[in-house]
Amino acid sequence: MTRVLYLIACAAGPTQYIDDGVRAAQATGWDVCLILTPSAAAWWEPRMQELVDLTGHPVRSRYKLPWEQDQLPKADAMLVAPMSCTTLNKWGAGIADTLAIGLPSEGVHMGVRVASMPYFNQAQAAQPAVGASIAALRKQGVMVLDGPGGYQPHPPKQGDPKAFPWRQALDRLDA
Rank of each mutant, 00 (worst) to 15 (best):
V130Q: 11
A41P: 04
V59C: 06
A100M: 14
G131M: 06
G102N: 01
M117T: 00
A135D: 15
L65D: 13
G149L: 04
V108M: 12
L99W: 05
V4T: 15
A25E: 01
Q124H: 05
T2Y: 00
S105V: 05
L7V: 07
T37H: 07
R167V: 12
R167L: 15
L34Y: 09
R167K: 12
P58S: 06
L88W: 01
G159C: 14
I35T: 10
L65C: 03
D70T: 01
I18Y: 08
Q122S: 15
G150H: 11
L137N: 13
M78Y: 01
Q26Y: 05
K162S: 07
A132I: 07
Q26K: 15
P153K: 02
G147P: 11
P118M: 05
G56D: 14
P58D: 09
I8T: 08
I101R: 11
Y151G: 00
D146E: 03
R3K: 15
Q124C: 04
P148F: 06
T37E: 08
Q71S: 14
A175W: 05
D174E: 15
T86M: 06
G149A: 13
V130F: 12
I35K: 12
Q158L: 02
G111S: 09
N121I: 06
L5R: 03
Y151V: 03
I8L: 14
R23E: 00
P66M: 02
G111D: 04
K157Q: 14
E50P: 00
T28W: 08
P165Y: 02
C10A: 14
A77I: 03
G92M: 08
M78I: 00
M83G: 13
P118H: 10
V108T: 05
A25M: 03
E45L: 09
A100I: 14
A40K: 13
A132K: 07
P165D: 07
R167A: 12
N121M: 02
Y151W: 04
T87E: 09
A169Q: 00
K139A: 15
G147I: 05
I35N: 05
A163Y: 08
R113F: 06
A9W: 05
K139E: 15
S133A: 15
L103H: 04
T2Q: 10
K162W: 13
L173S: 13
G56R: 12
Y6E: 11
G102M: 07
T98G: 05
A12I: 10
P165H: 00
E106P: 08
C33W: 03
P165W: 01
Q168S: 12
L99A: 09
V114H: 00
